[in-house]
Amino acid sequence: MSTSTAAGRKPGTGAAKQPAAASGGGTSPGRGKSVLGGSKYSQKQLWFGALAWVIAIVFVLPYVEMAITALRPKDELTSDGYVPSKFEWANFVDVWDKSTLGDNLKVSLLVAGMSTLLVLVVSLPAAYYTARKRFRGRGVFLLLVLVTQMFQPTSLLVGLYREFYILDLLDSYWALVLVNGAFNLAFSVWILTAYFSAIPVELEEAAMIDGASRLGALRRVTLPLAMPGIVTAVIFTFIAAWNEFTVALVLVTTPDKQPLTVGINSFLGAYRVEWQYLFAGSVVAIVPVVILFAYIEKHVVSGLTAGSVK
């Protein structure tokens, strides 16, 4: 975030920092500046920071254990030491050779990416319209959307199989893109409707008076202001699609066409579990999502700042 936001910020806004932070609200636009100058943290903030860091570490610990187990030599899998006598780095290499992990990773990226795109393309206009217009059937539409979120895809497998059998999309990515898109639409529509509703129409109108077209006003004013919502929707959809398991298991049966979740599952054999590979694959699966998040989080911040400047 830092440089661009700090540069783009008007001098006056920095003053808002102190009261906001002290009152616990802390959305202060001033944080860009403080990152540049490390000494600006108050005692209280440092304490909060320490607590937050402890919690953050707790969040990561189970996955550290996952990684440690993935690095254990076979005969130390069930030893009770916290770390093995030596780390078997070869496990992380072997897991690629022993399975179709590489292909599965590509499928997961493709499916999660396309699903997210589909959700955005479909939900942005729907949410915008729903937020701005009191059209007939609005309530029914929002209810319909909410109801879709309630179904457990596991209970719909028979119907989903029939559907994609008839559409001739079994064993194809498109089935997964459609399913993930449809089942995750609800959250996006709802959260984006909430965000669009919160943005005053006057802002758009003002931009249009300034000579922007309606689309231009949308792009320059509304979308940036709704960016936190869009980012939340993107992350929600991407992660849900990334981790979807049951539907993919039934609809896609060719090993190298399966997403990562299903691919990793095959390390759980009928008679034995190859724990080190199971966990190695799982650690690998977490990385792309965290990268996406790191990348996108930067954008939400700049989106916000852009909004507040306006």
Partner: peptide, 12 residues
Amino acid sequence: VADYGSGDGSMQ
């Protein structure tokens, strides 16, 4: 066919 194996795709 059923896969009894253990992730290495050996059944396949």
